[in-house]
């Protein structure tokens, strides 16, 4: 079974995000970059399938030079090779163009299952996996929390409000990973060392035969509105404090 896992390098969840004064994006200085956590679930699931059924796991990532570290992280976990799509034109590109580039890269390699995170934690767009499936003309199952391979098809669980769906899909197929799918492994040290020597193909848009033409673009990045200061309700009696809280929620915050 040949598996592809798409990964994106994103700022660490704890990183201090500062918006550039001109609104053209965020300040990158001092940011610790990590693999998008949802993509990590995809990589882990890919490795588990490889351990069970054999085959190769290829990591594909679109990003600047630093994205190579994230590809190496996935290789350290146990993936076999990487494709690094590095093209300045793709920086900040929309999901349509990113997916087009990924699709172009993936078309050239055998793929039974393609994993993506259900969304990336930086822009929270959640589109790449779906668009990629469309470009490849294959089915997609999204927000997957459990996956079983049965012959030439997969059965997955997709939680929805108040229930969960058991979905069966033919292969090849795009799967977007949701939290709960697995616990990503910690890379072993021999794994980390071997990852340094695993092959990573670097490609640009032209090399993939893709023309980058954004359909949507981020006009401006703005900092979130400043949070108003909190209020501590004082009083002797809990009942009195509760009354005051209810009053404030209704009259000041207008939420009840």
């Amino acid at each position: 079974m040949n598996i592809v896992a798409c990964v994106k390098q994103v700022p660490d969840t704890e990183a201090a995000i500062k918006v550039k004064p001109d609104g053209s994006g965020i300040e990158e200085a001092g940011i610790k970059w990590v693999m998008n956590p949802y993509d990590e679930f995809g990589v882990e699931e890919a490795l588990k399938l490889k351990e069970k059924f054999g085959g190769d796991v290829t990591i594909v990532s679109v990003g600047p030079a630093r994205a190579l570290e994230t590809i190496r992280t996935a290789l350290a976990m146990g993936a076999d090779k990487g494709i690094h799509i590095n093209d300045p034109a793709l920086e900040g590109a929309d999901a349509y163009n990113i997916a087009a580039a990924l699709a172009a890269a993936i078309k050239g390699i055998p793929h039974d299952i393609i994993f993506c995170g259900q969304r990336a934690i930086d822009d929270d767009a959640g589109q790449v996996g779906s668009v990629l499936a469309e470009f490849l003309g294959i089915p997609q199952v999204t927000f997957v929390t459990k996956l079983d391979v049965e012959g030439a098809s997969i059965k997955v669980i997709r939680p929805i409000e108040g229930a969960q769906l058991l979905i069966q899909s033919s292969l090849p197929c795009v799967v977007t990973a949701q939290k709960g799918l697995n616990e990503p492994r910690y890379a072993s040290l021999p794994g980390i060392m071997k990852a340094k020597k695993k092959p990573v193909d670097v490609k640009d848009a032209a090399g993939l035969g893709v023309t980058v033409a954004p359909k949507a673009k981020i006009a401006k990045t703005l900092p979130p509105p400043a949070r108003p200061p909190g209020k501590i309700i004082c009083g002797e009696e809990p009942a009195e404090k509760a009354r005051e809280l209810a009053k404030l929620l209704r009259e000041e915050a207008k939420v009840i």
């Binding site: 616990e183 492994r185 910690y186 890379a187 072993s188 040290l189 021999p190 794994g191």
Partner: peptide, 10 residues
């Protein structure tokens, strides 16, 4: 356990 096997408490 940690370095060679990467098998330890989550």
């Amino acid at each position: 356990k940690v370095l060679t096997e990467a098998d330890f408490a989550p």
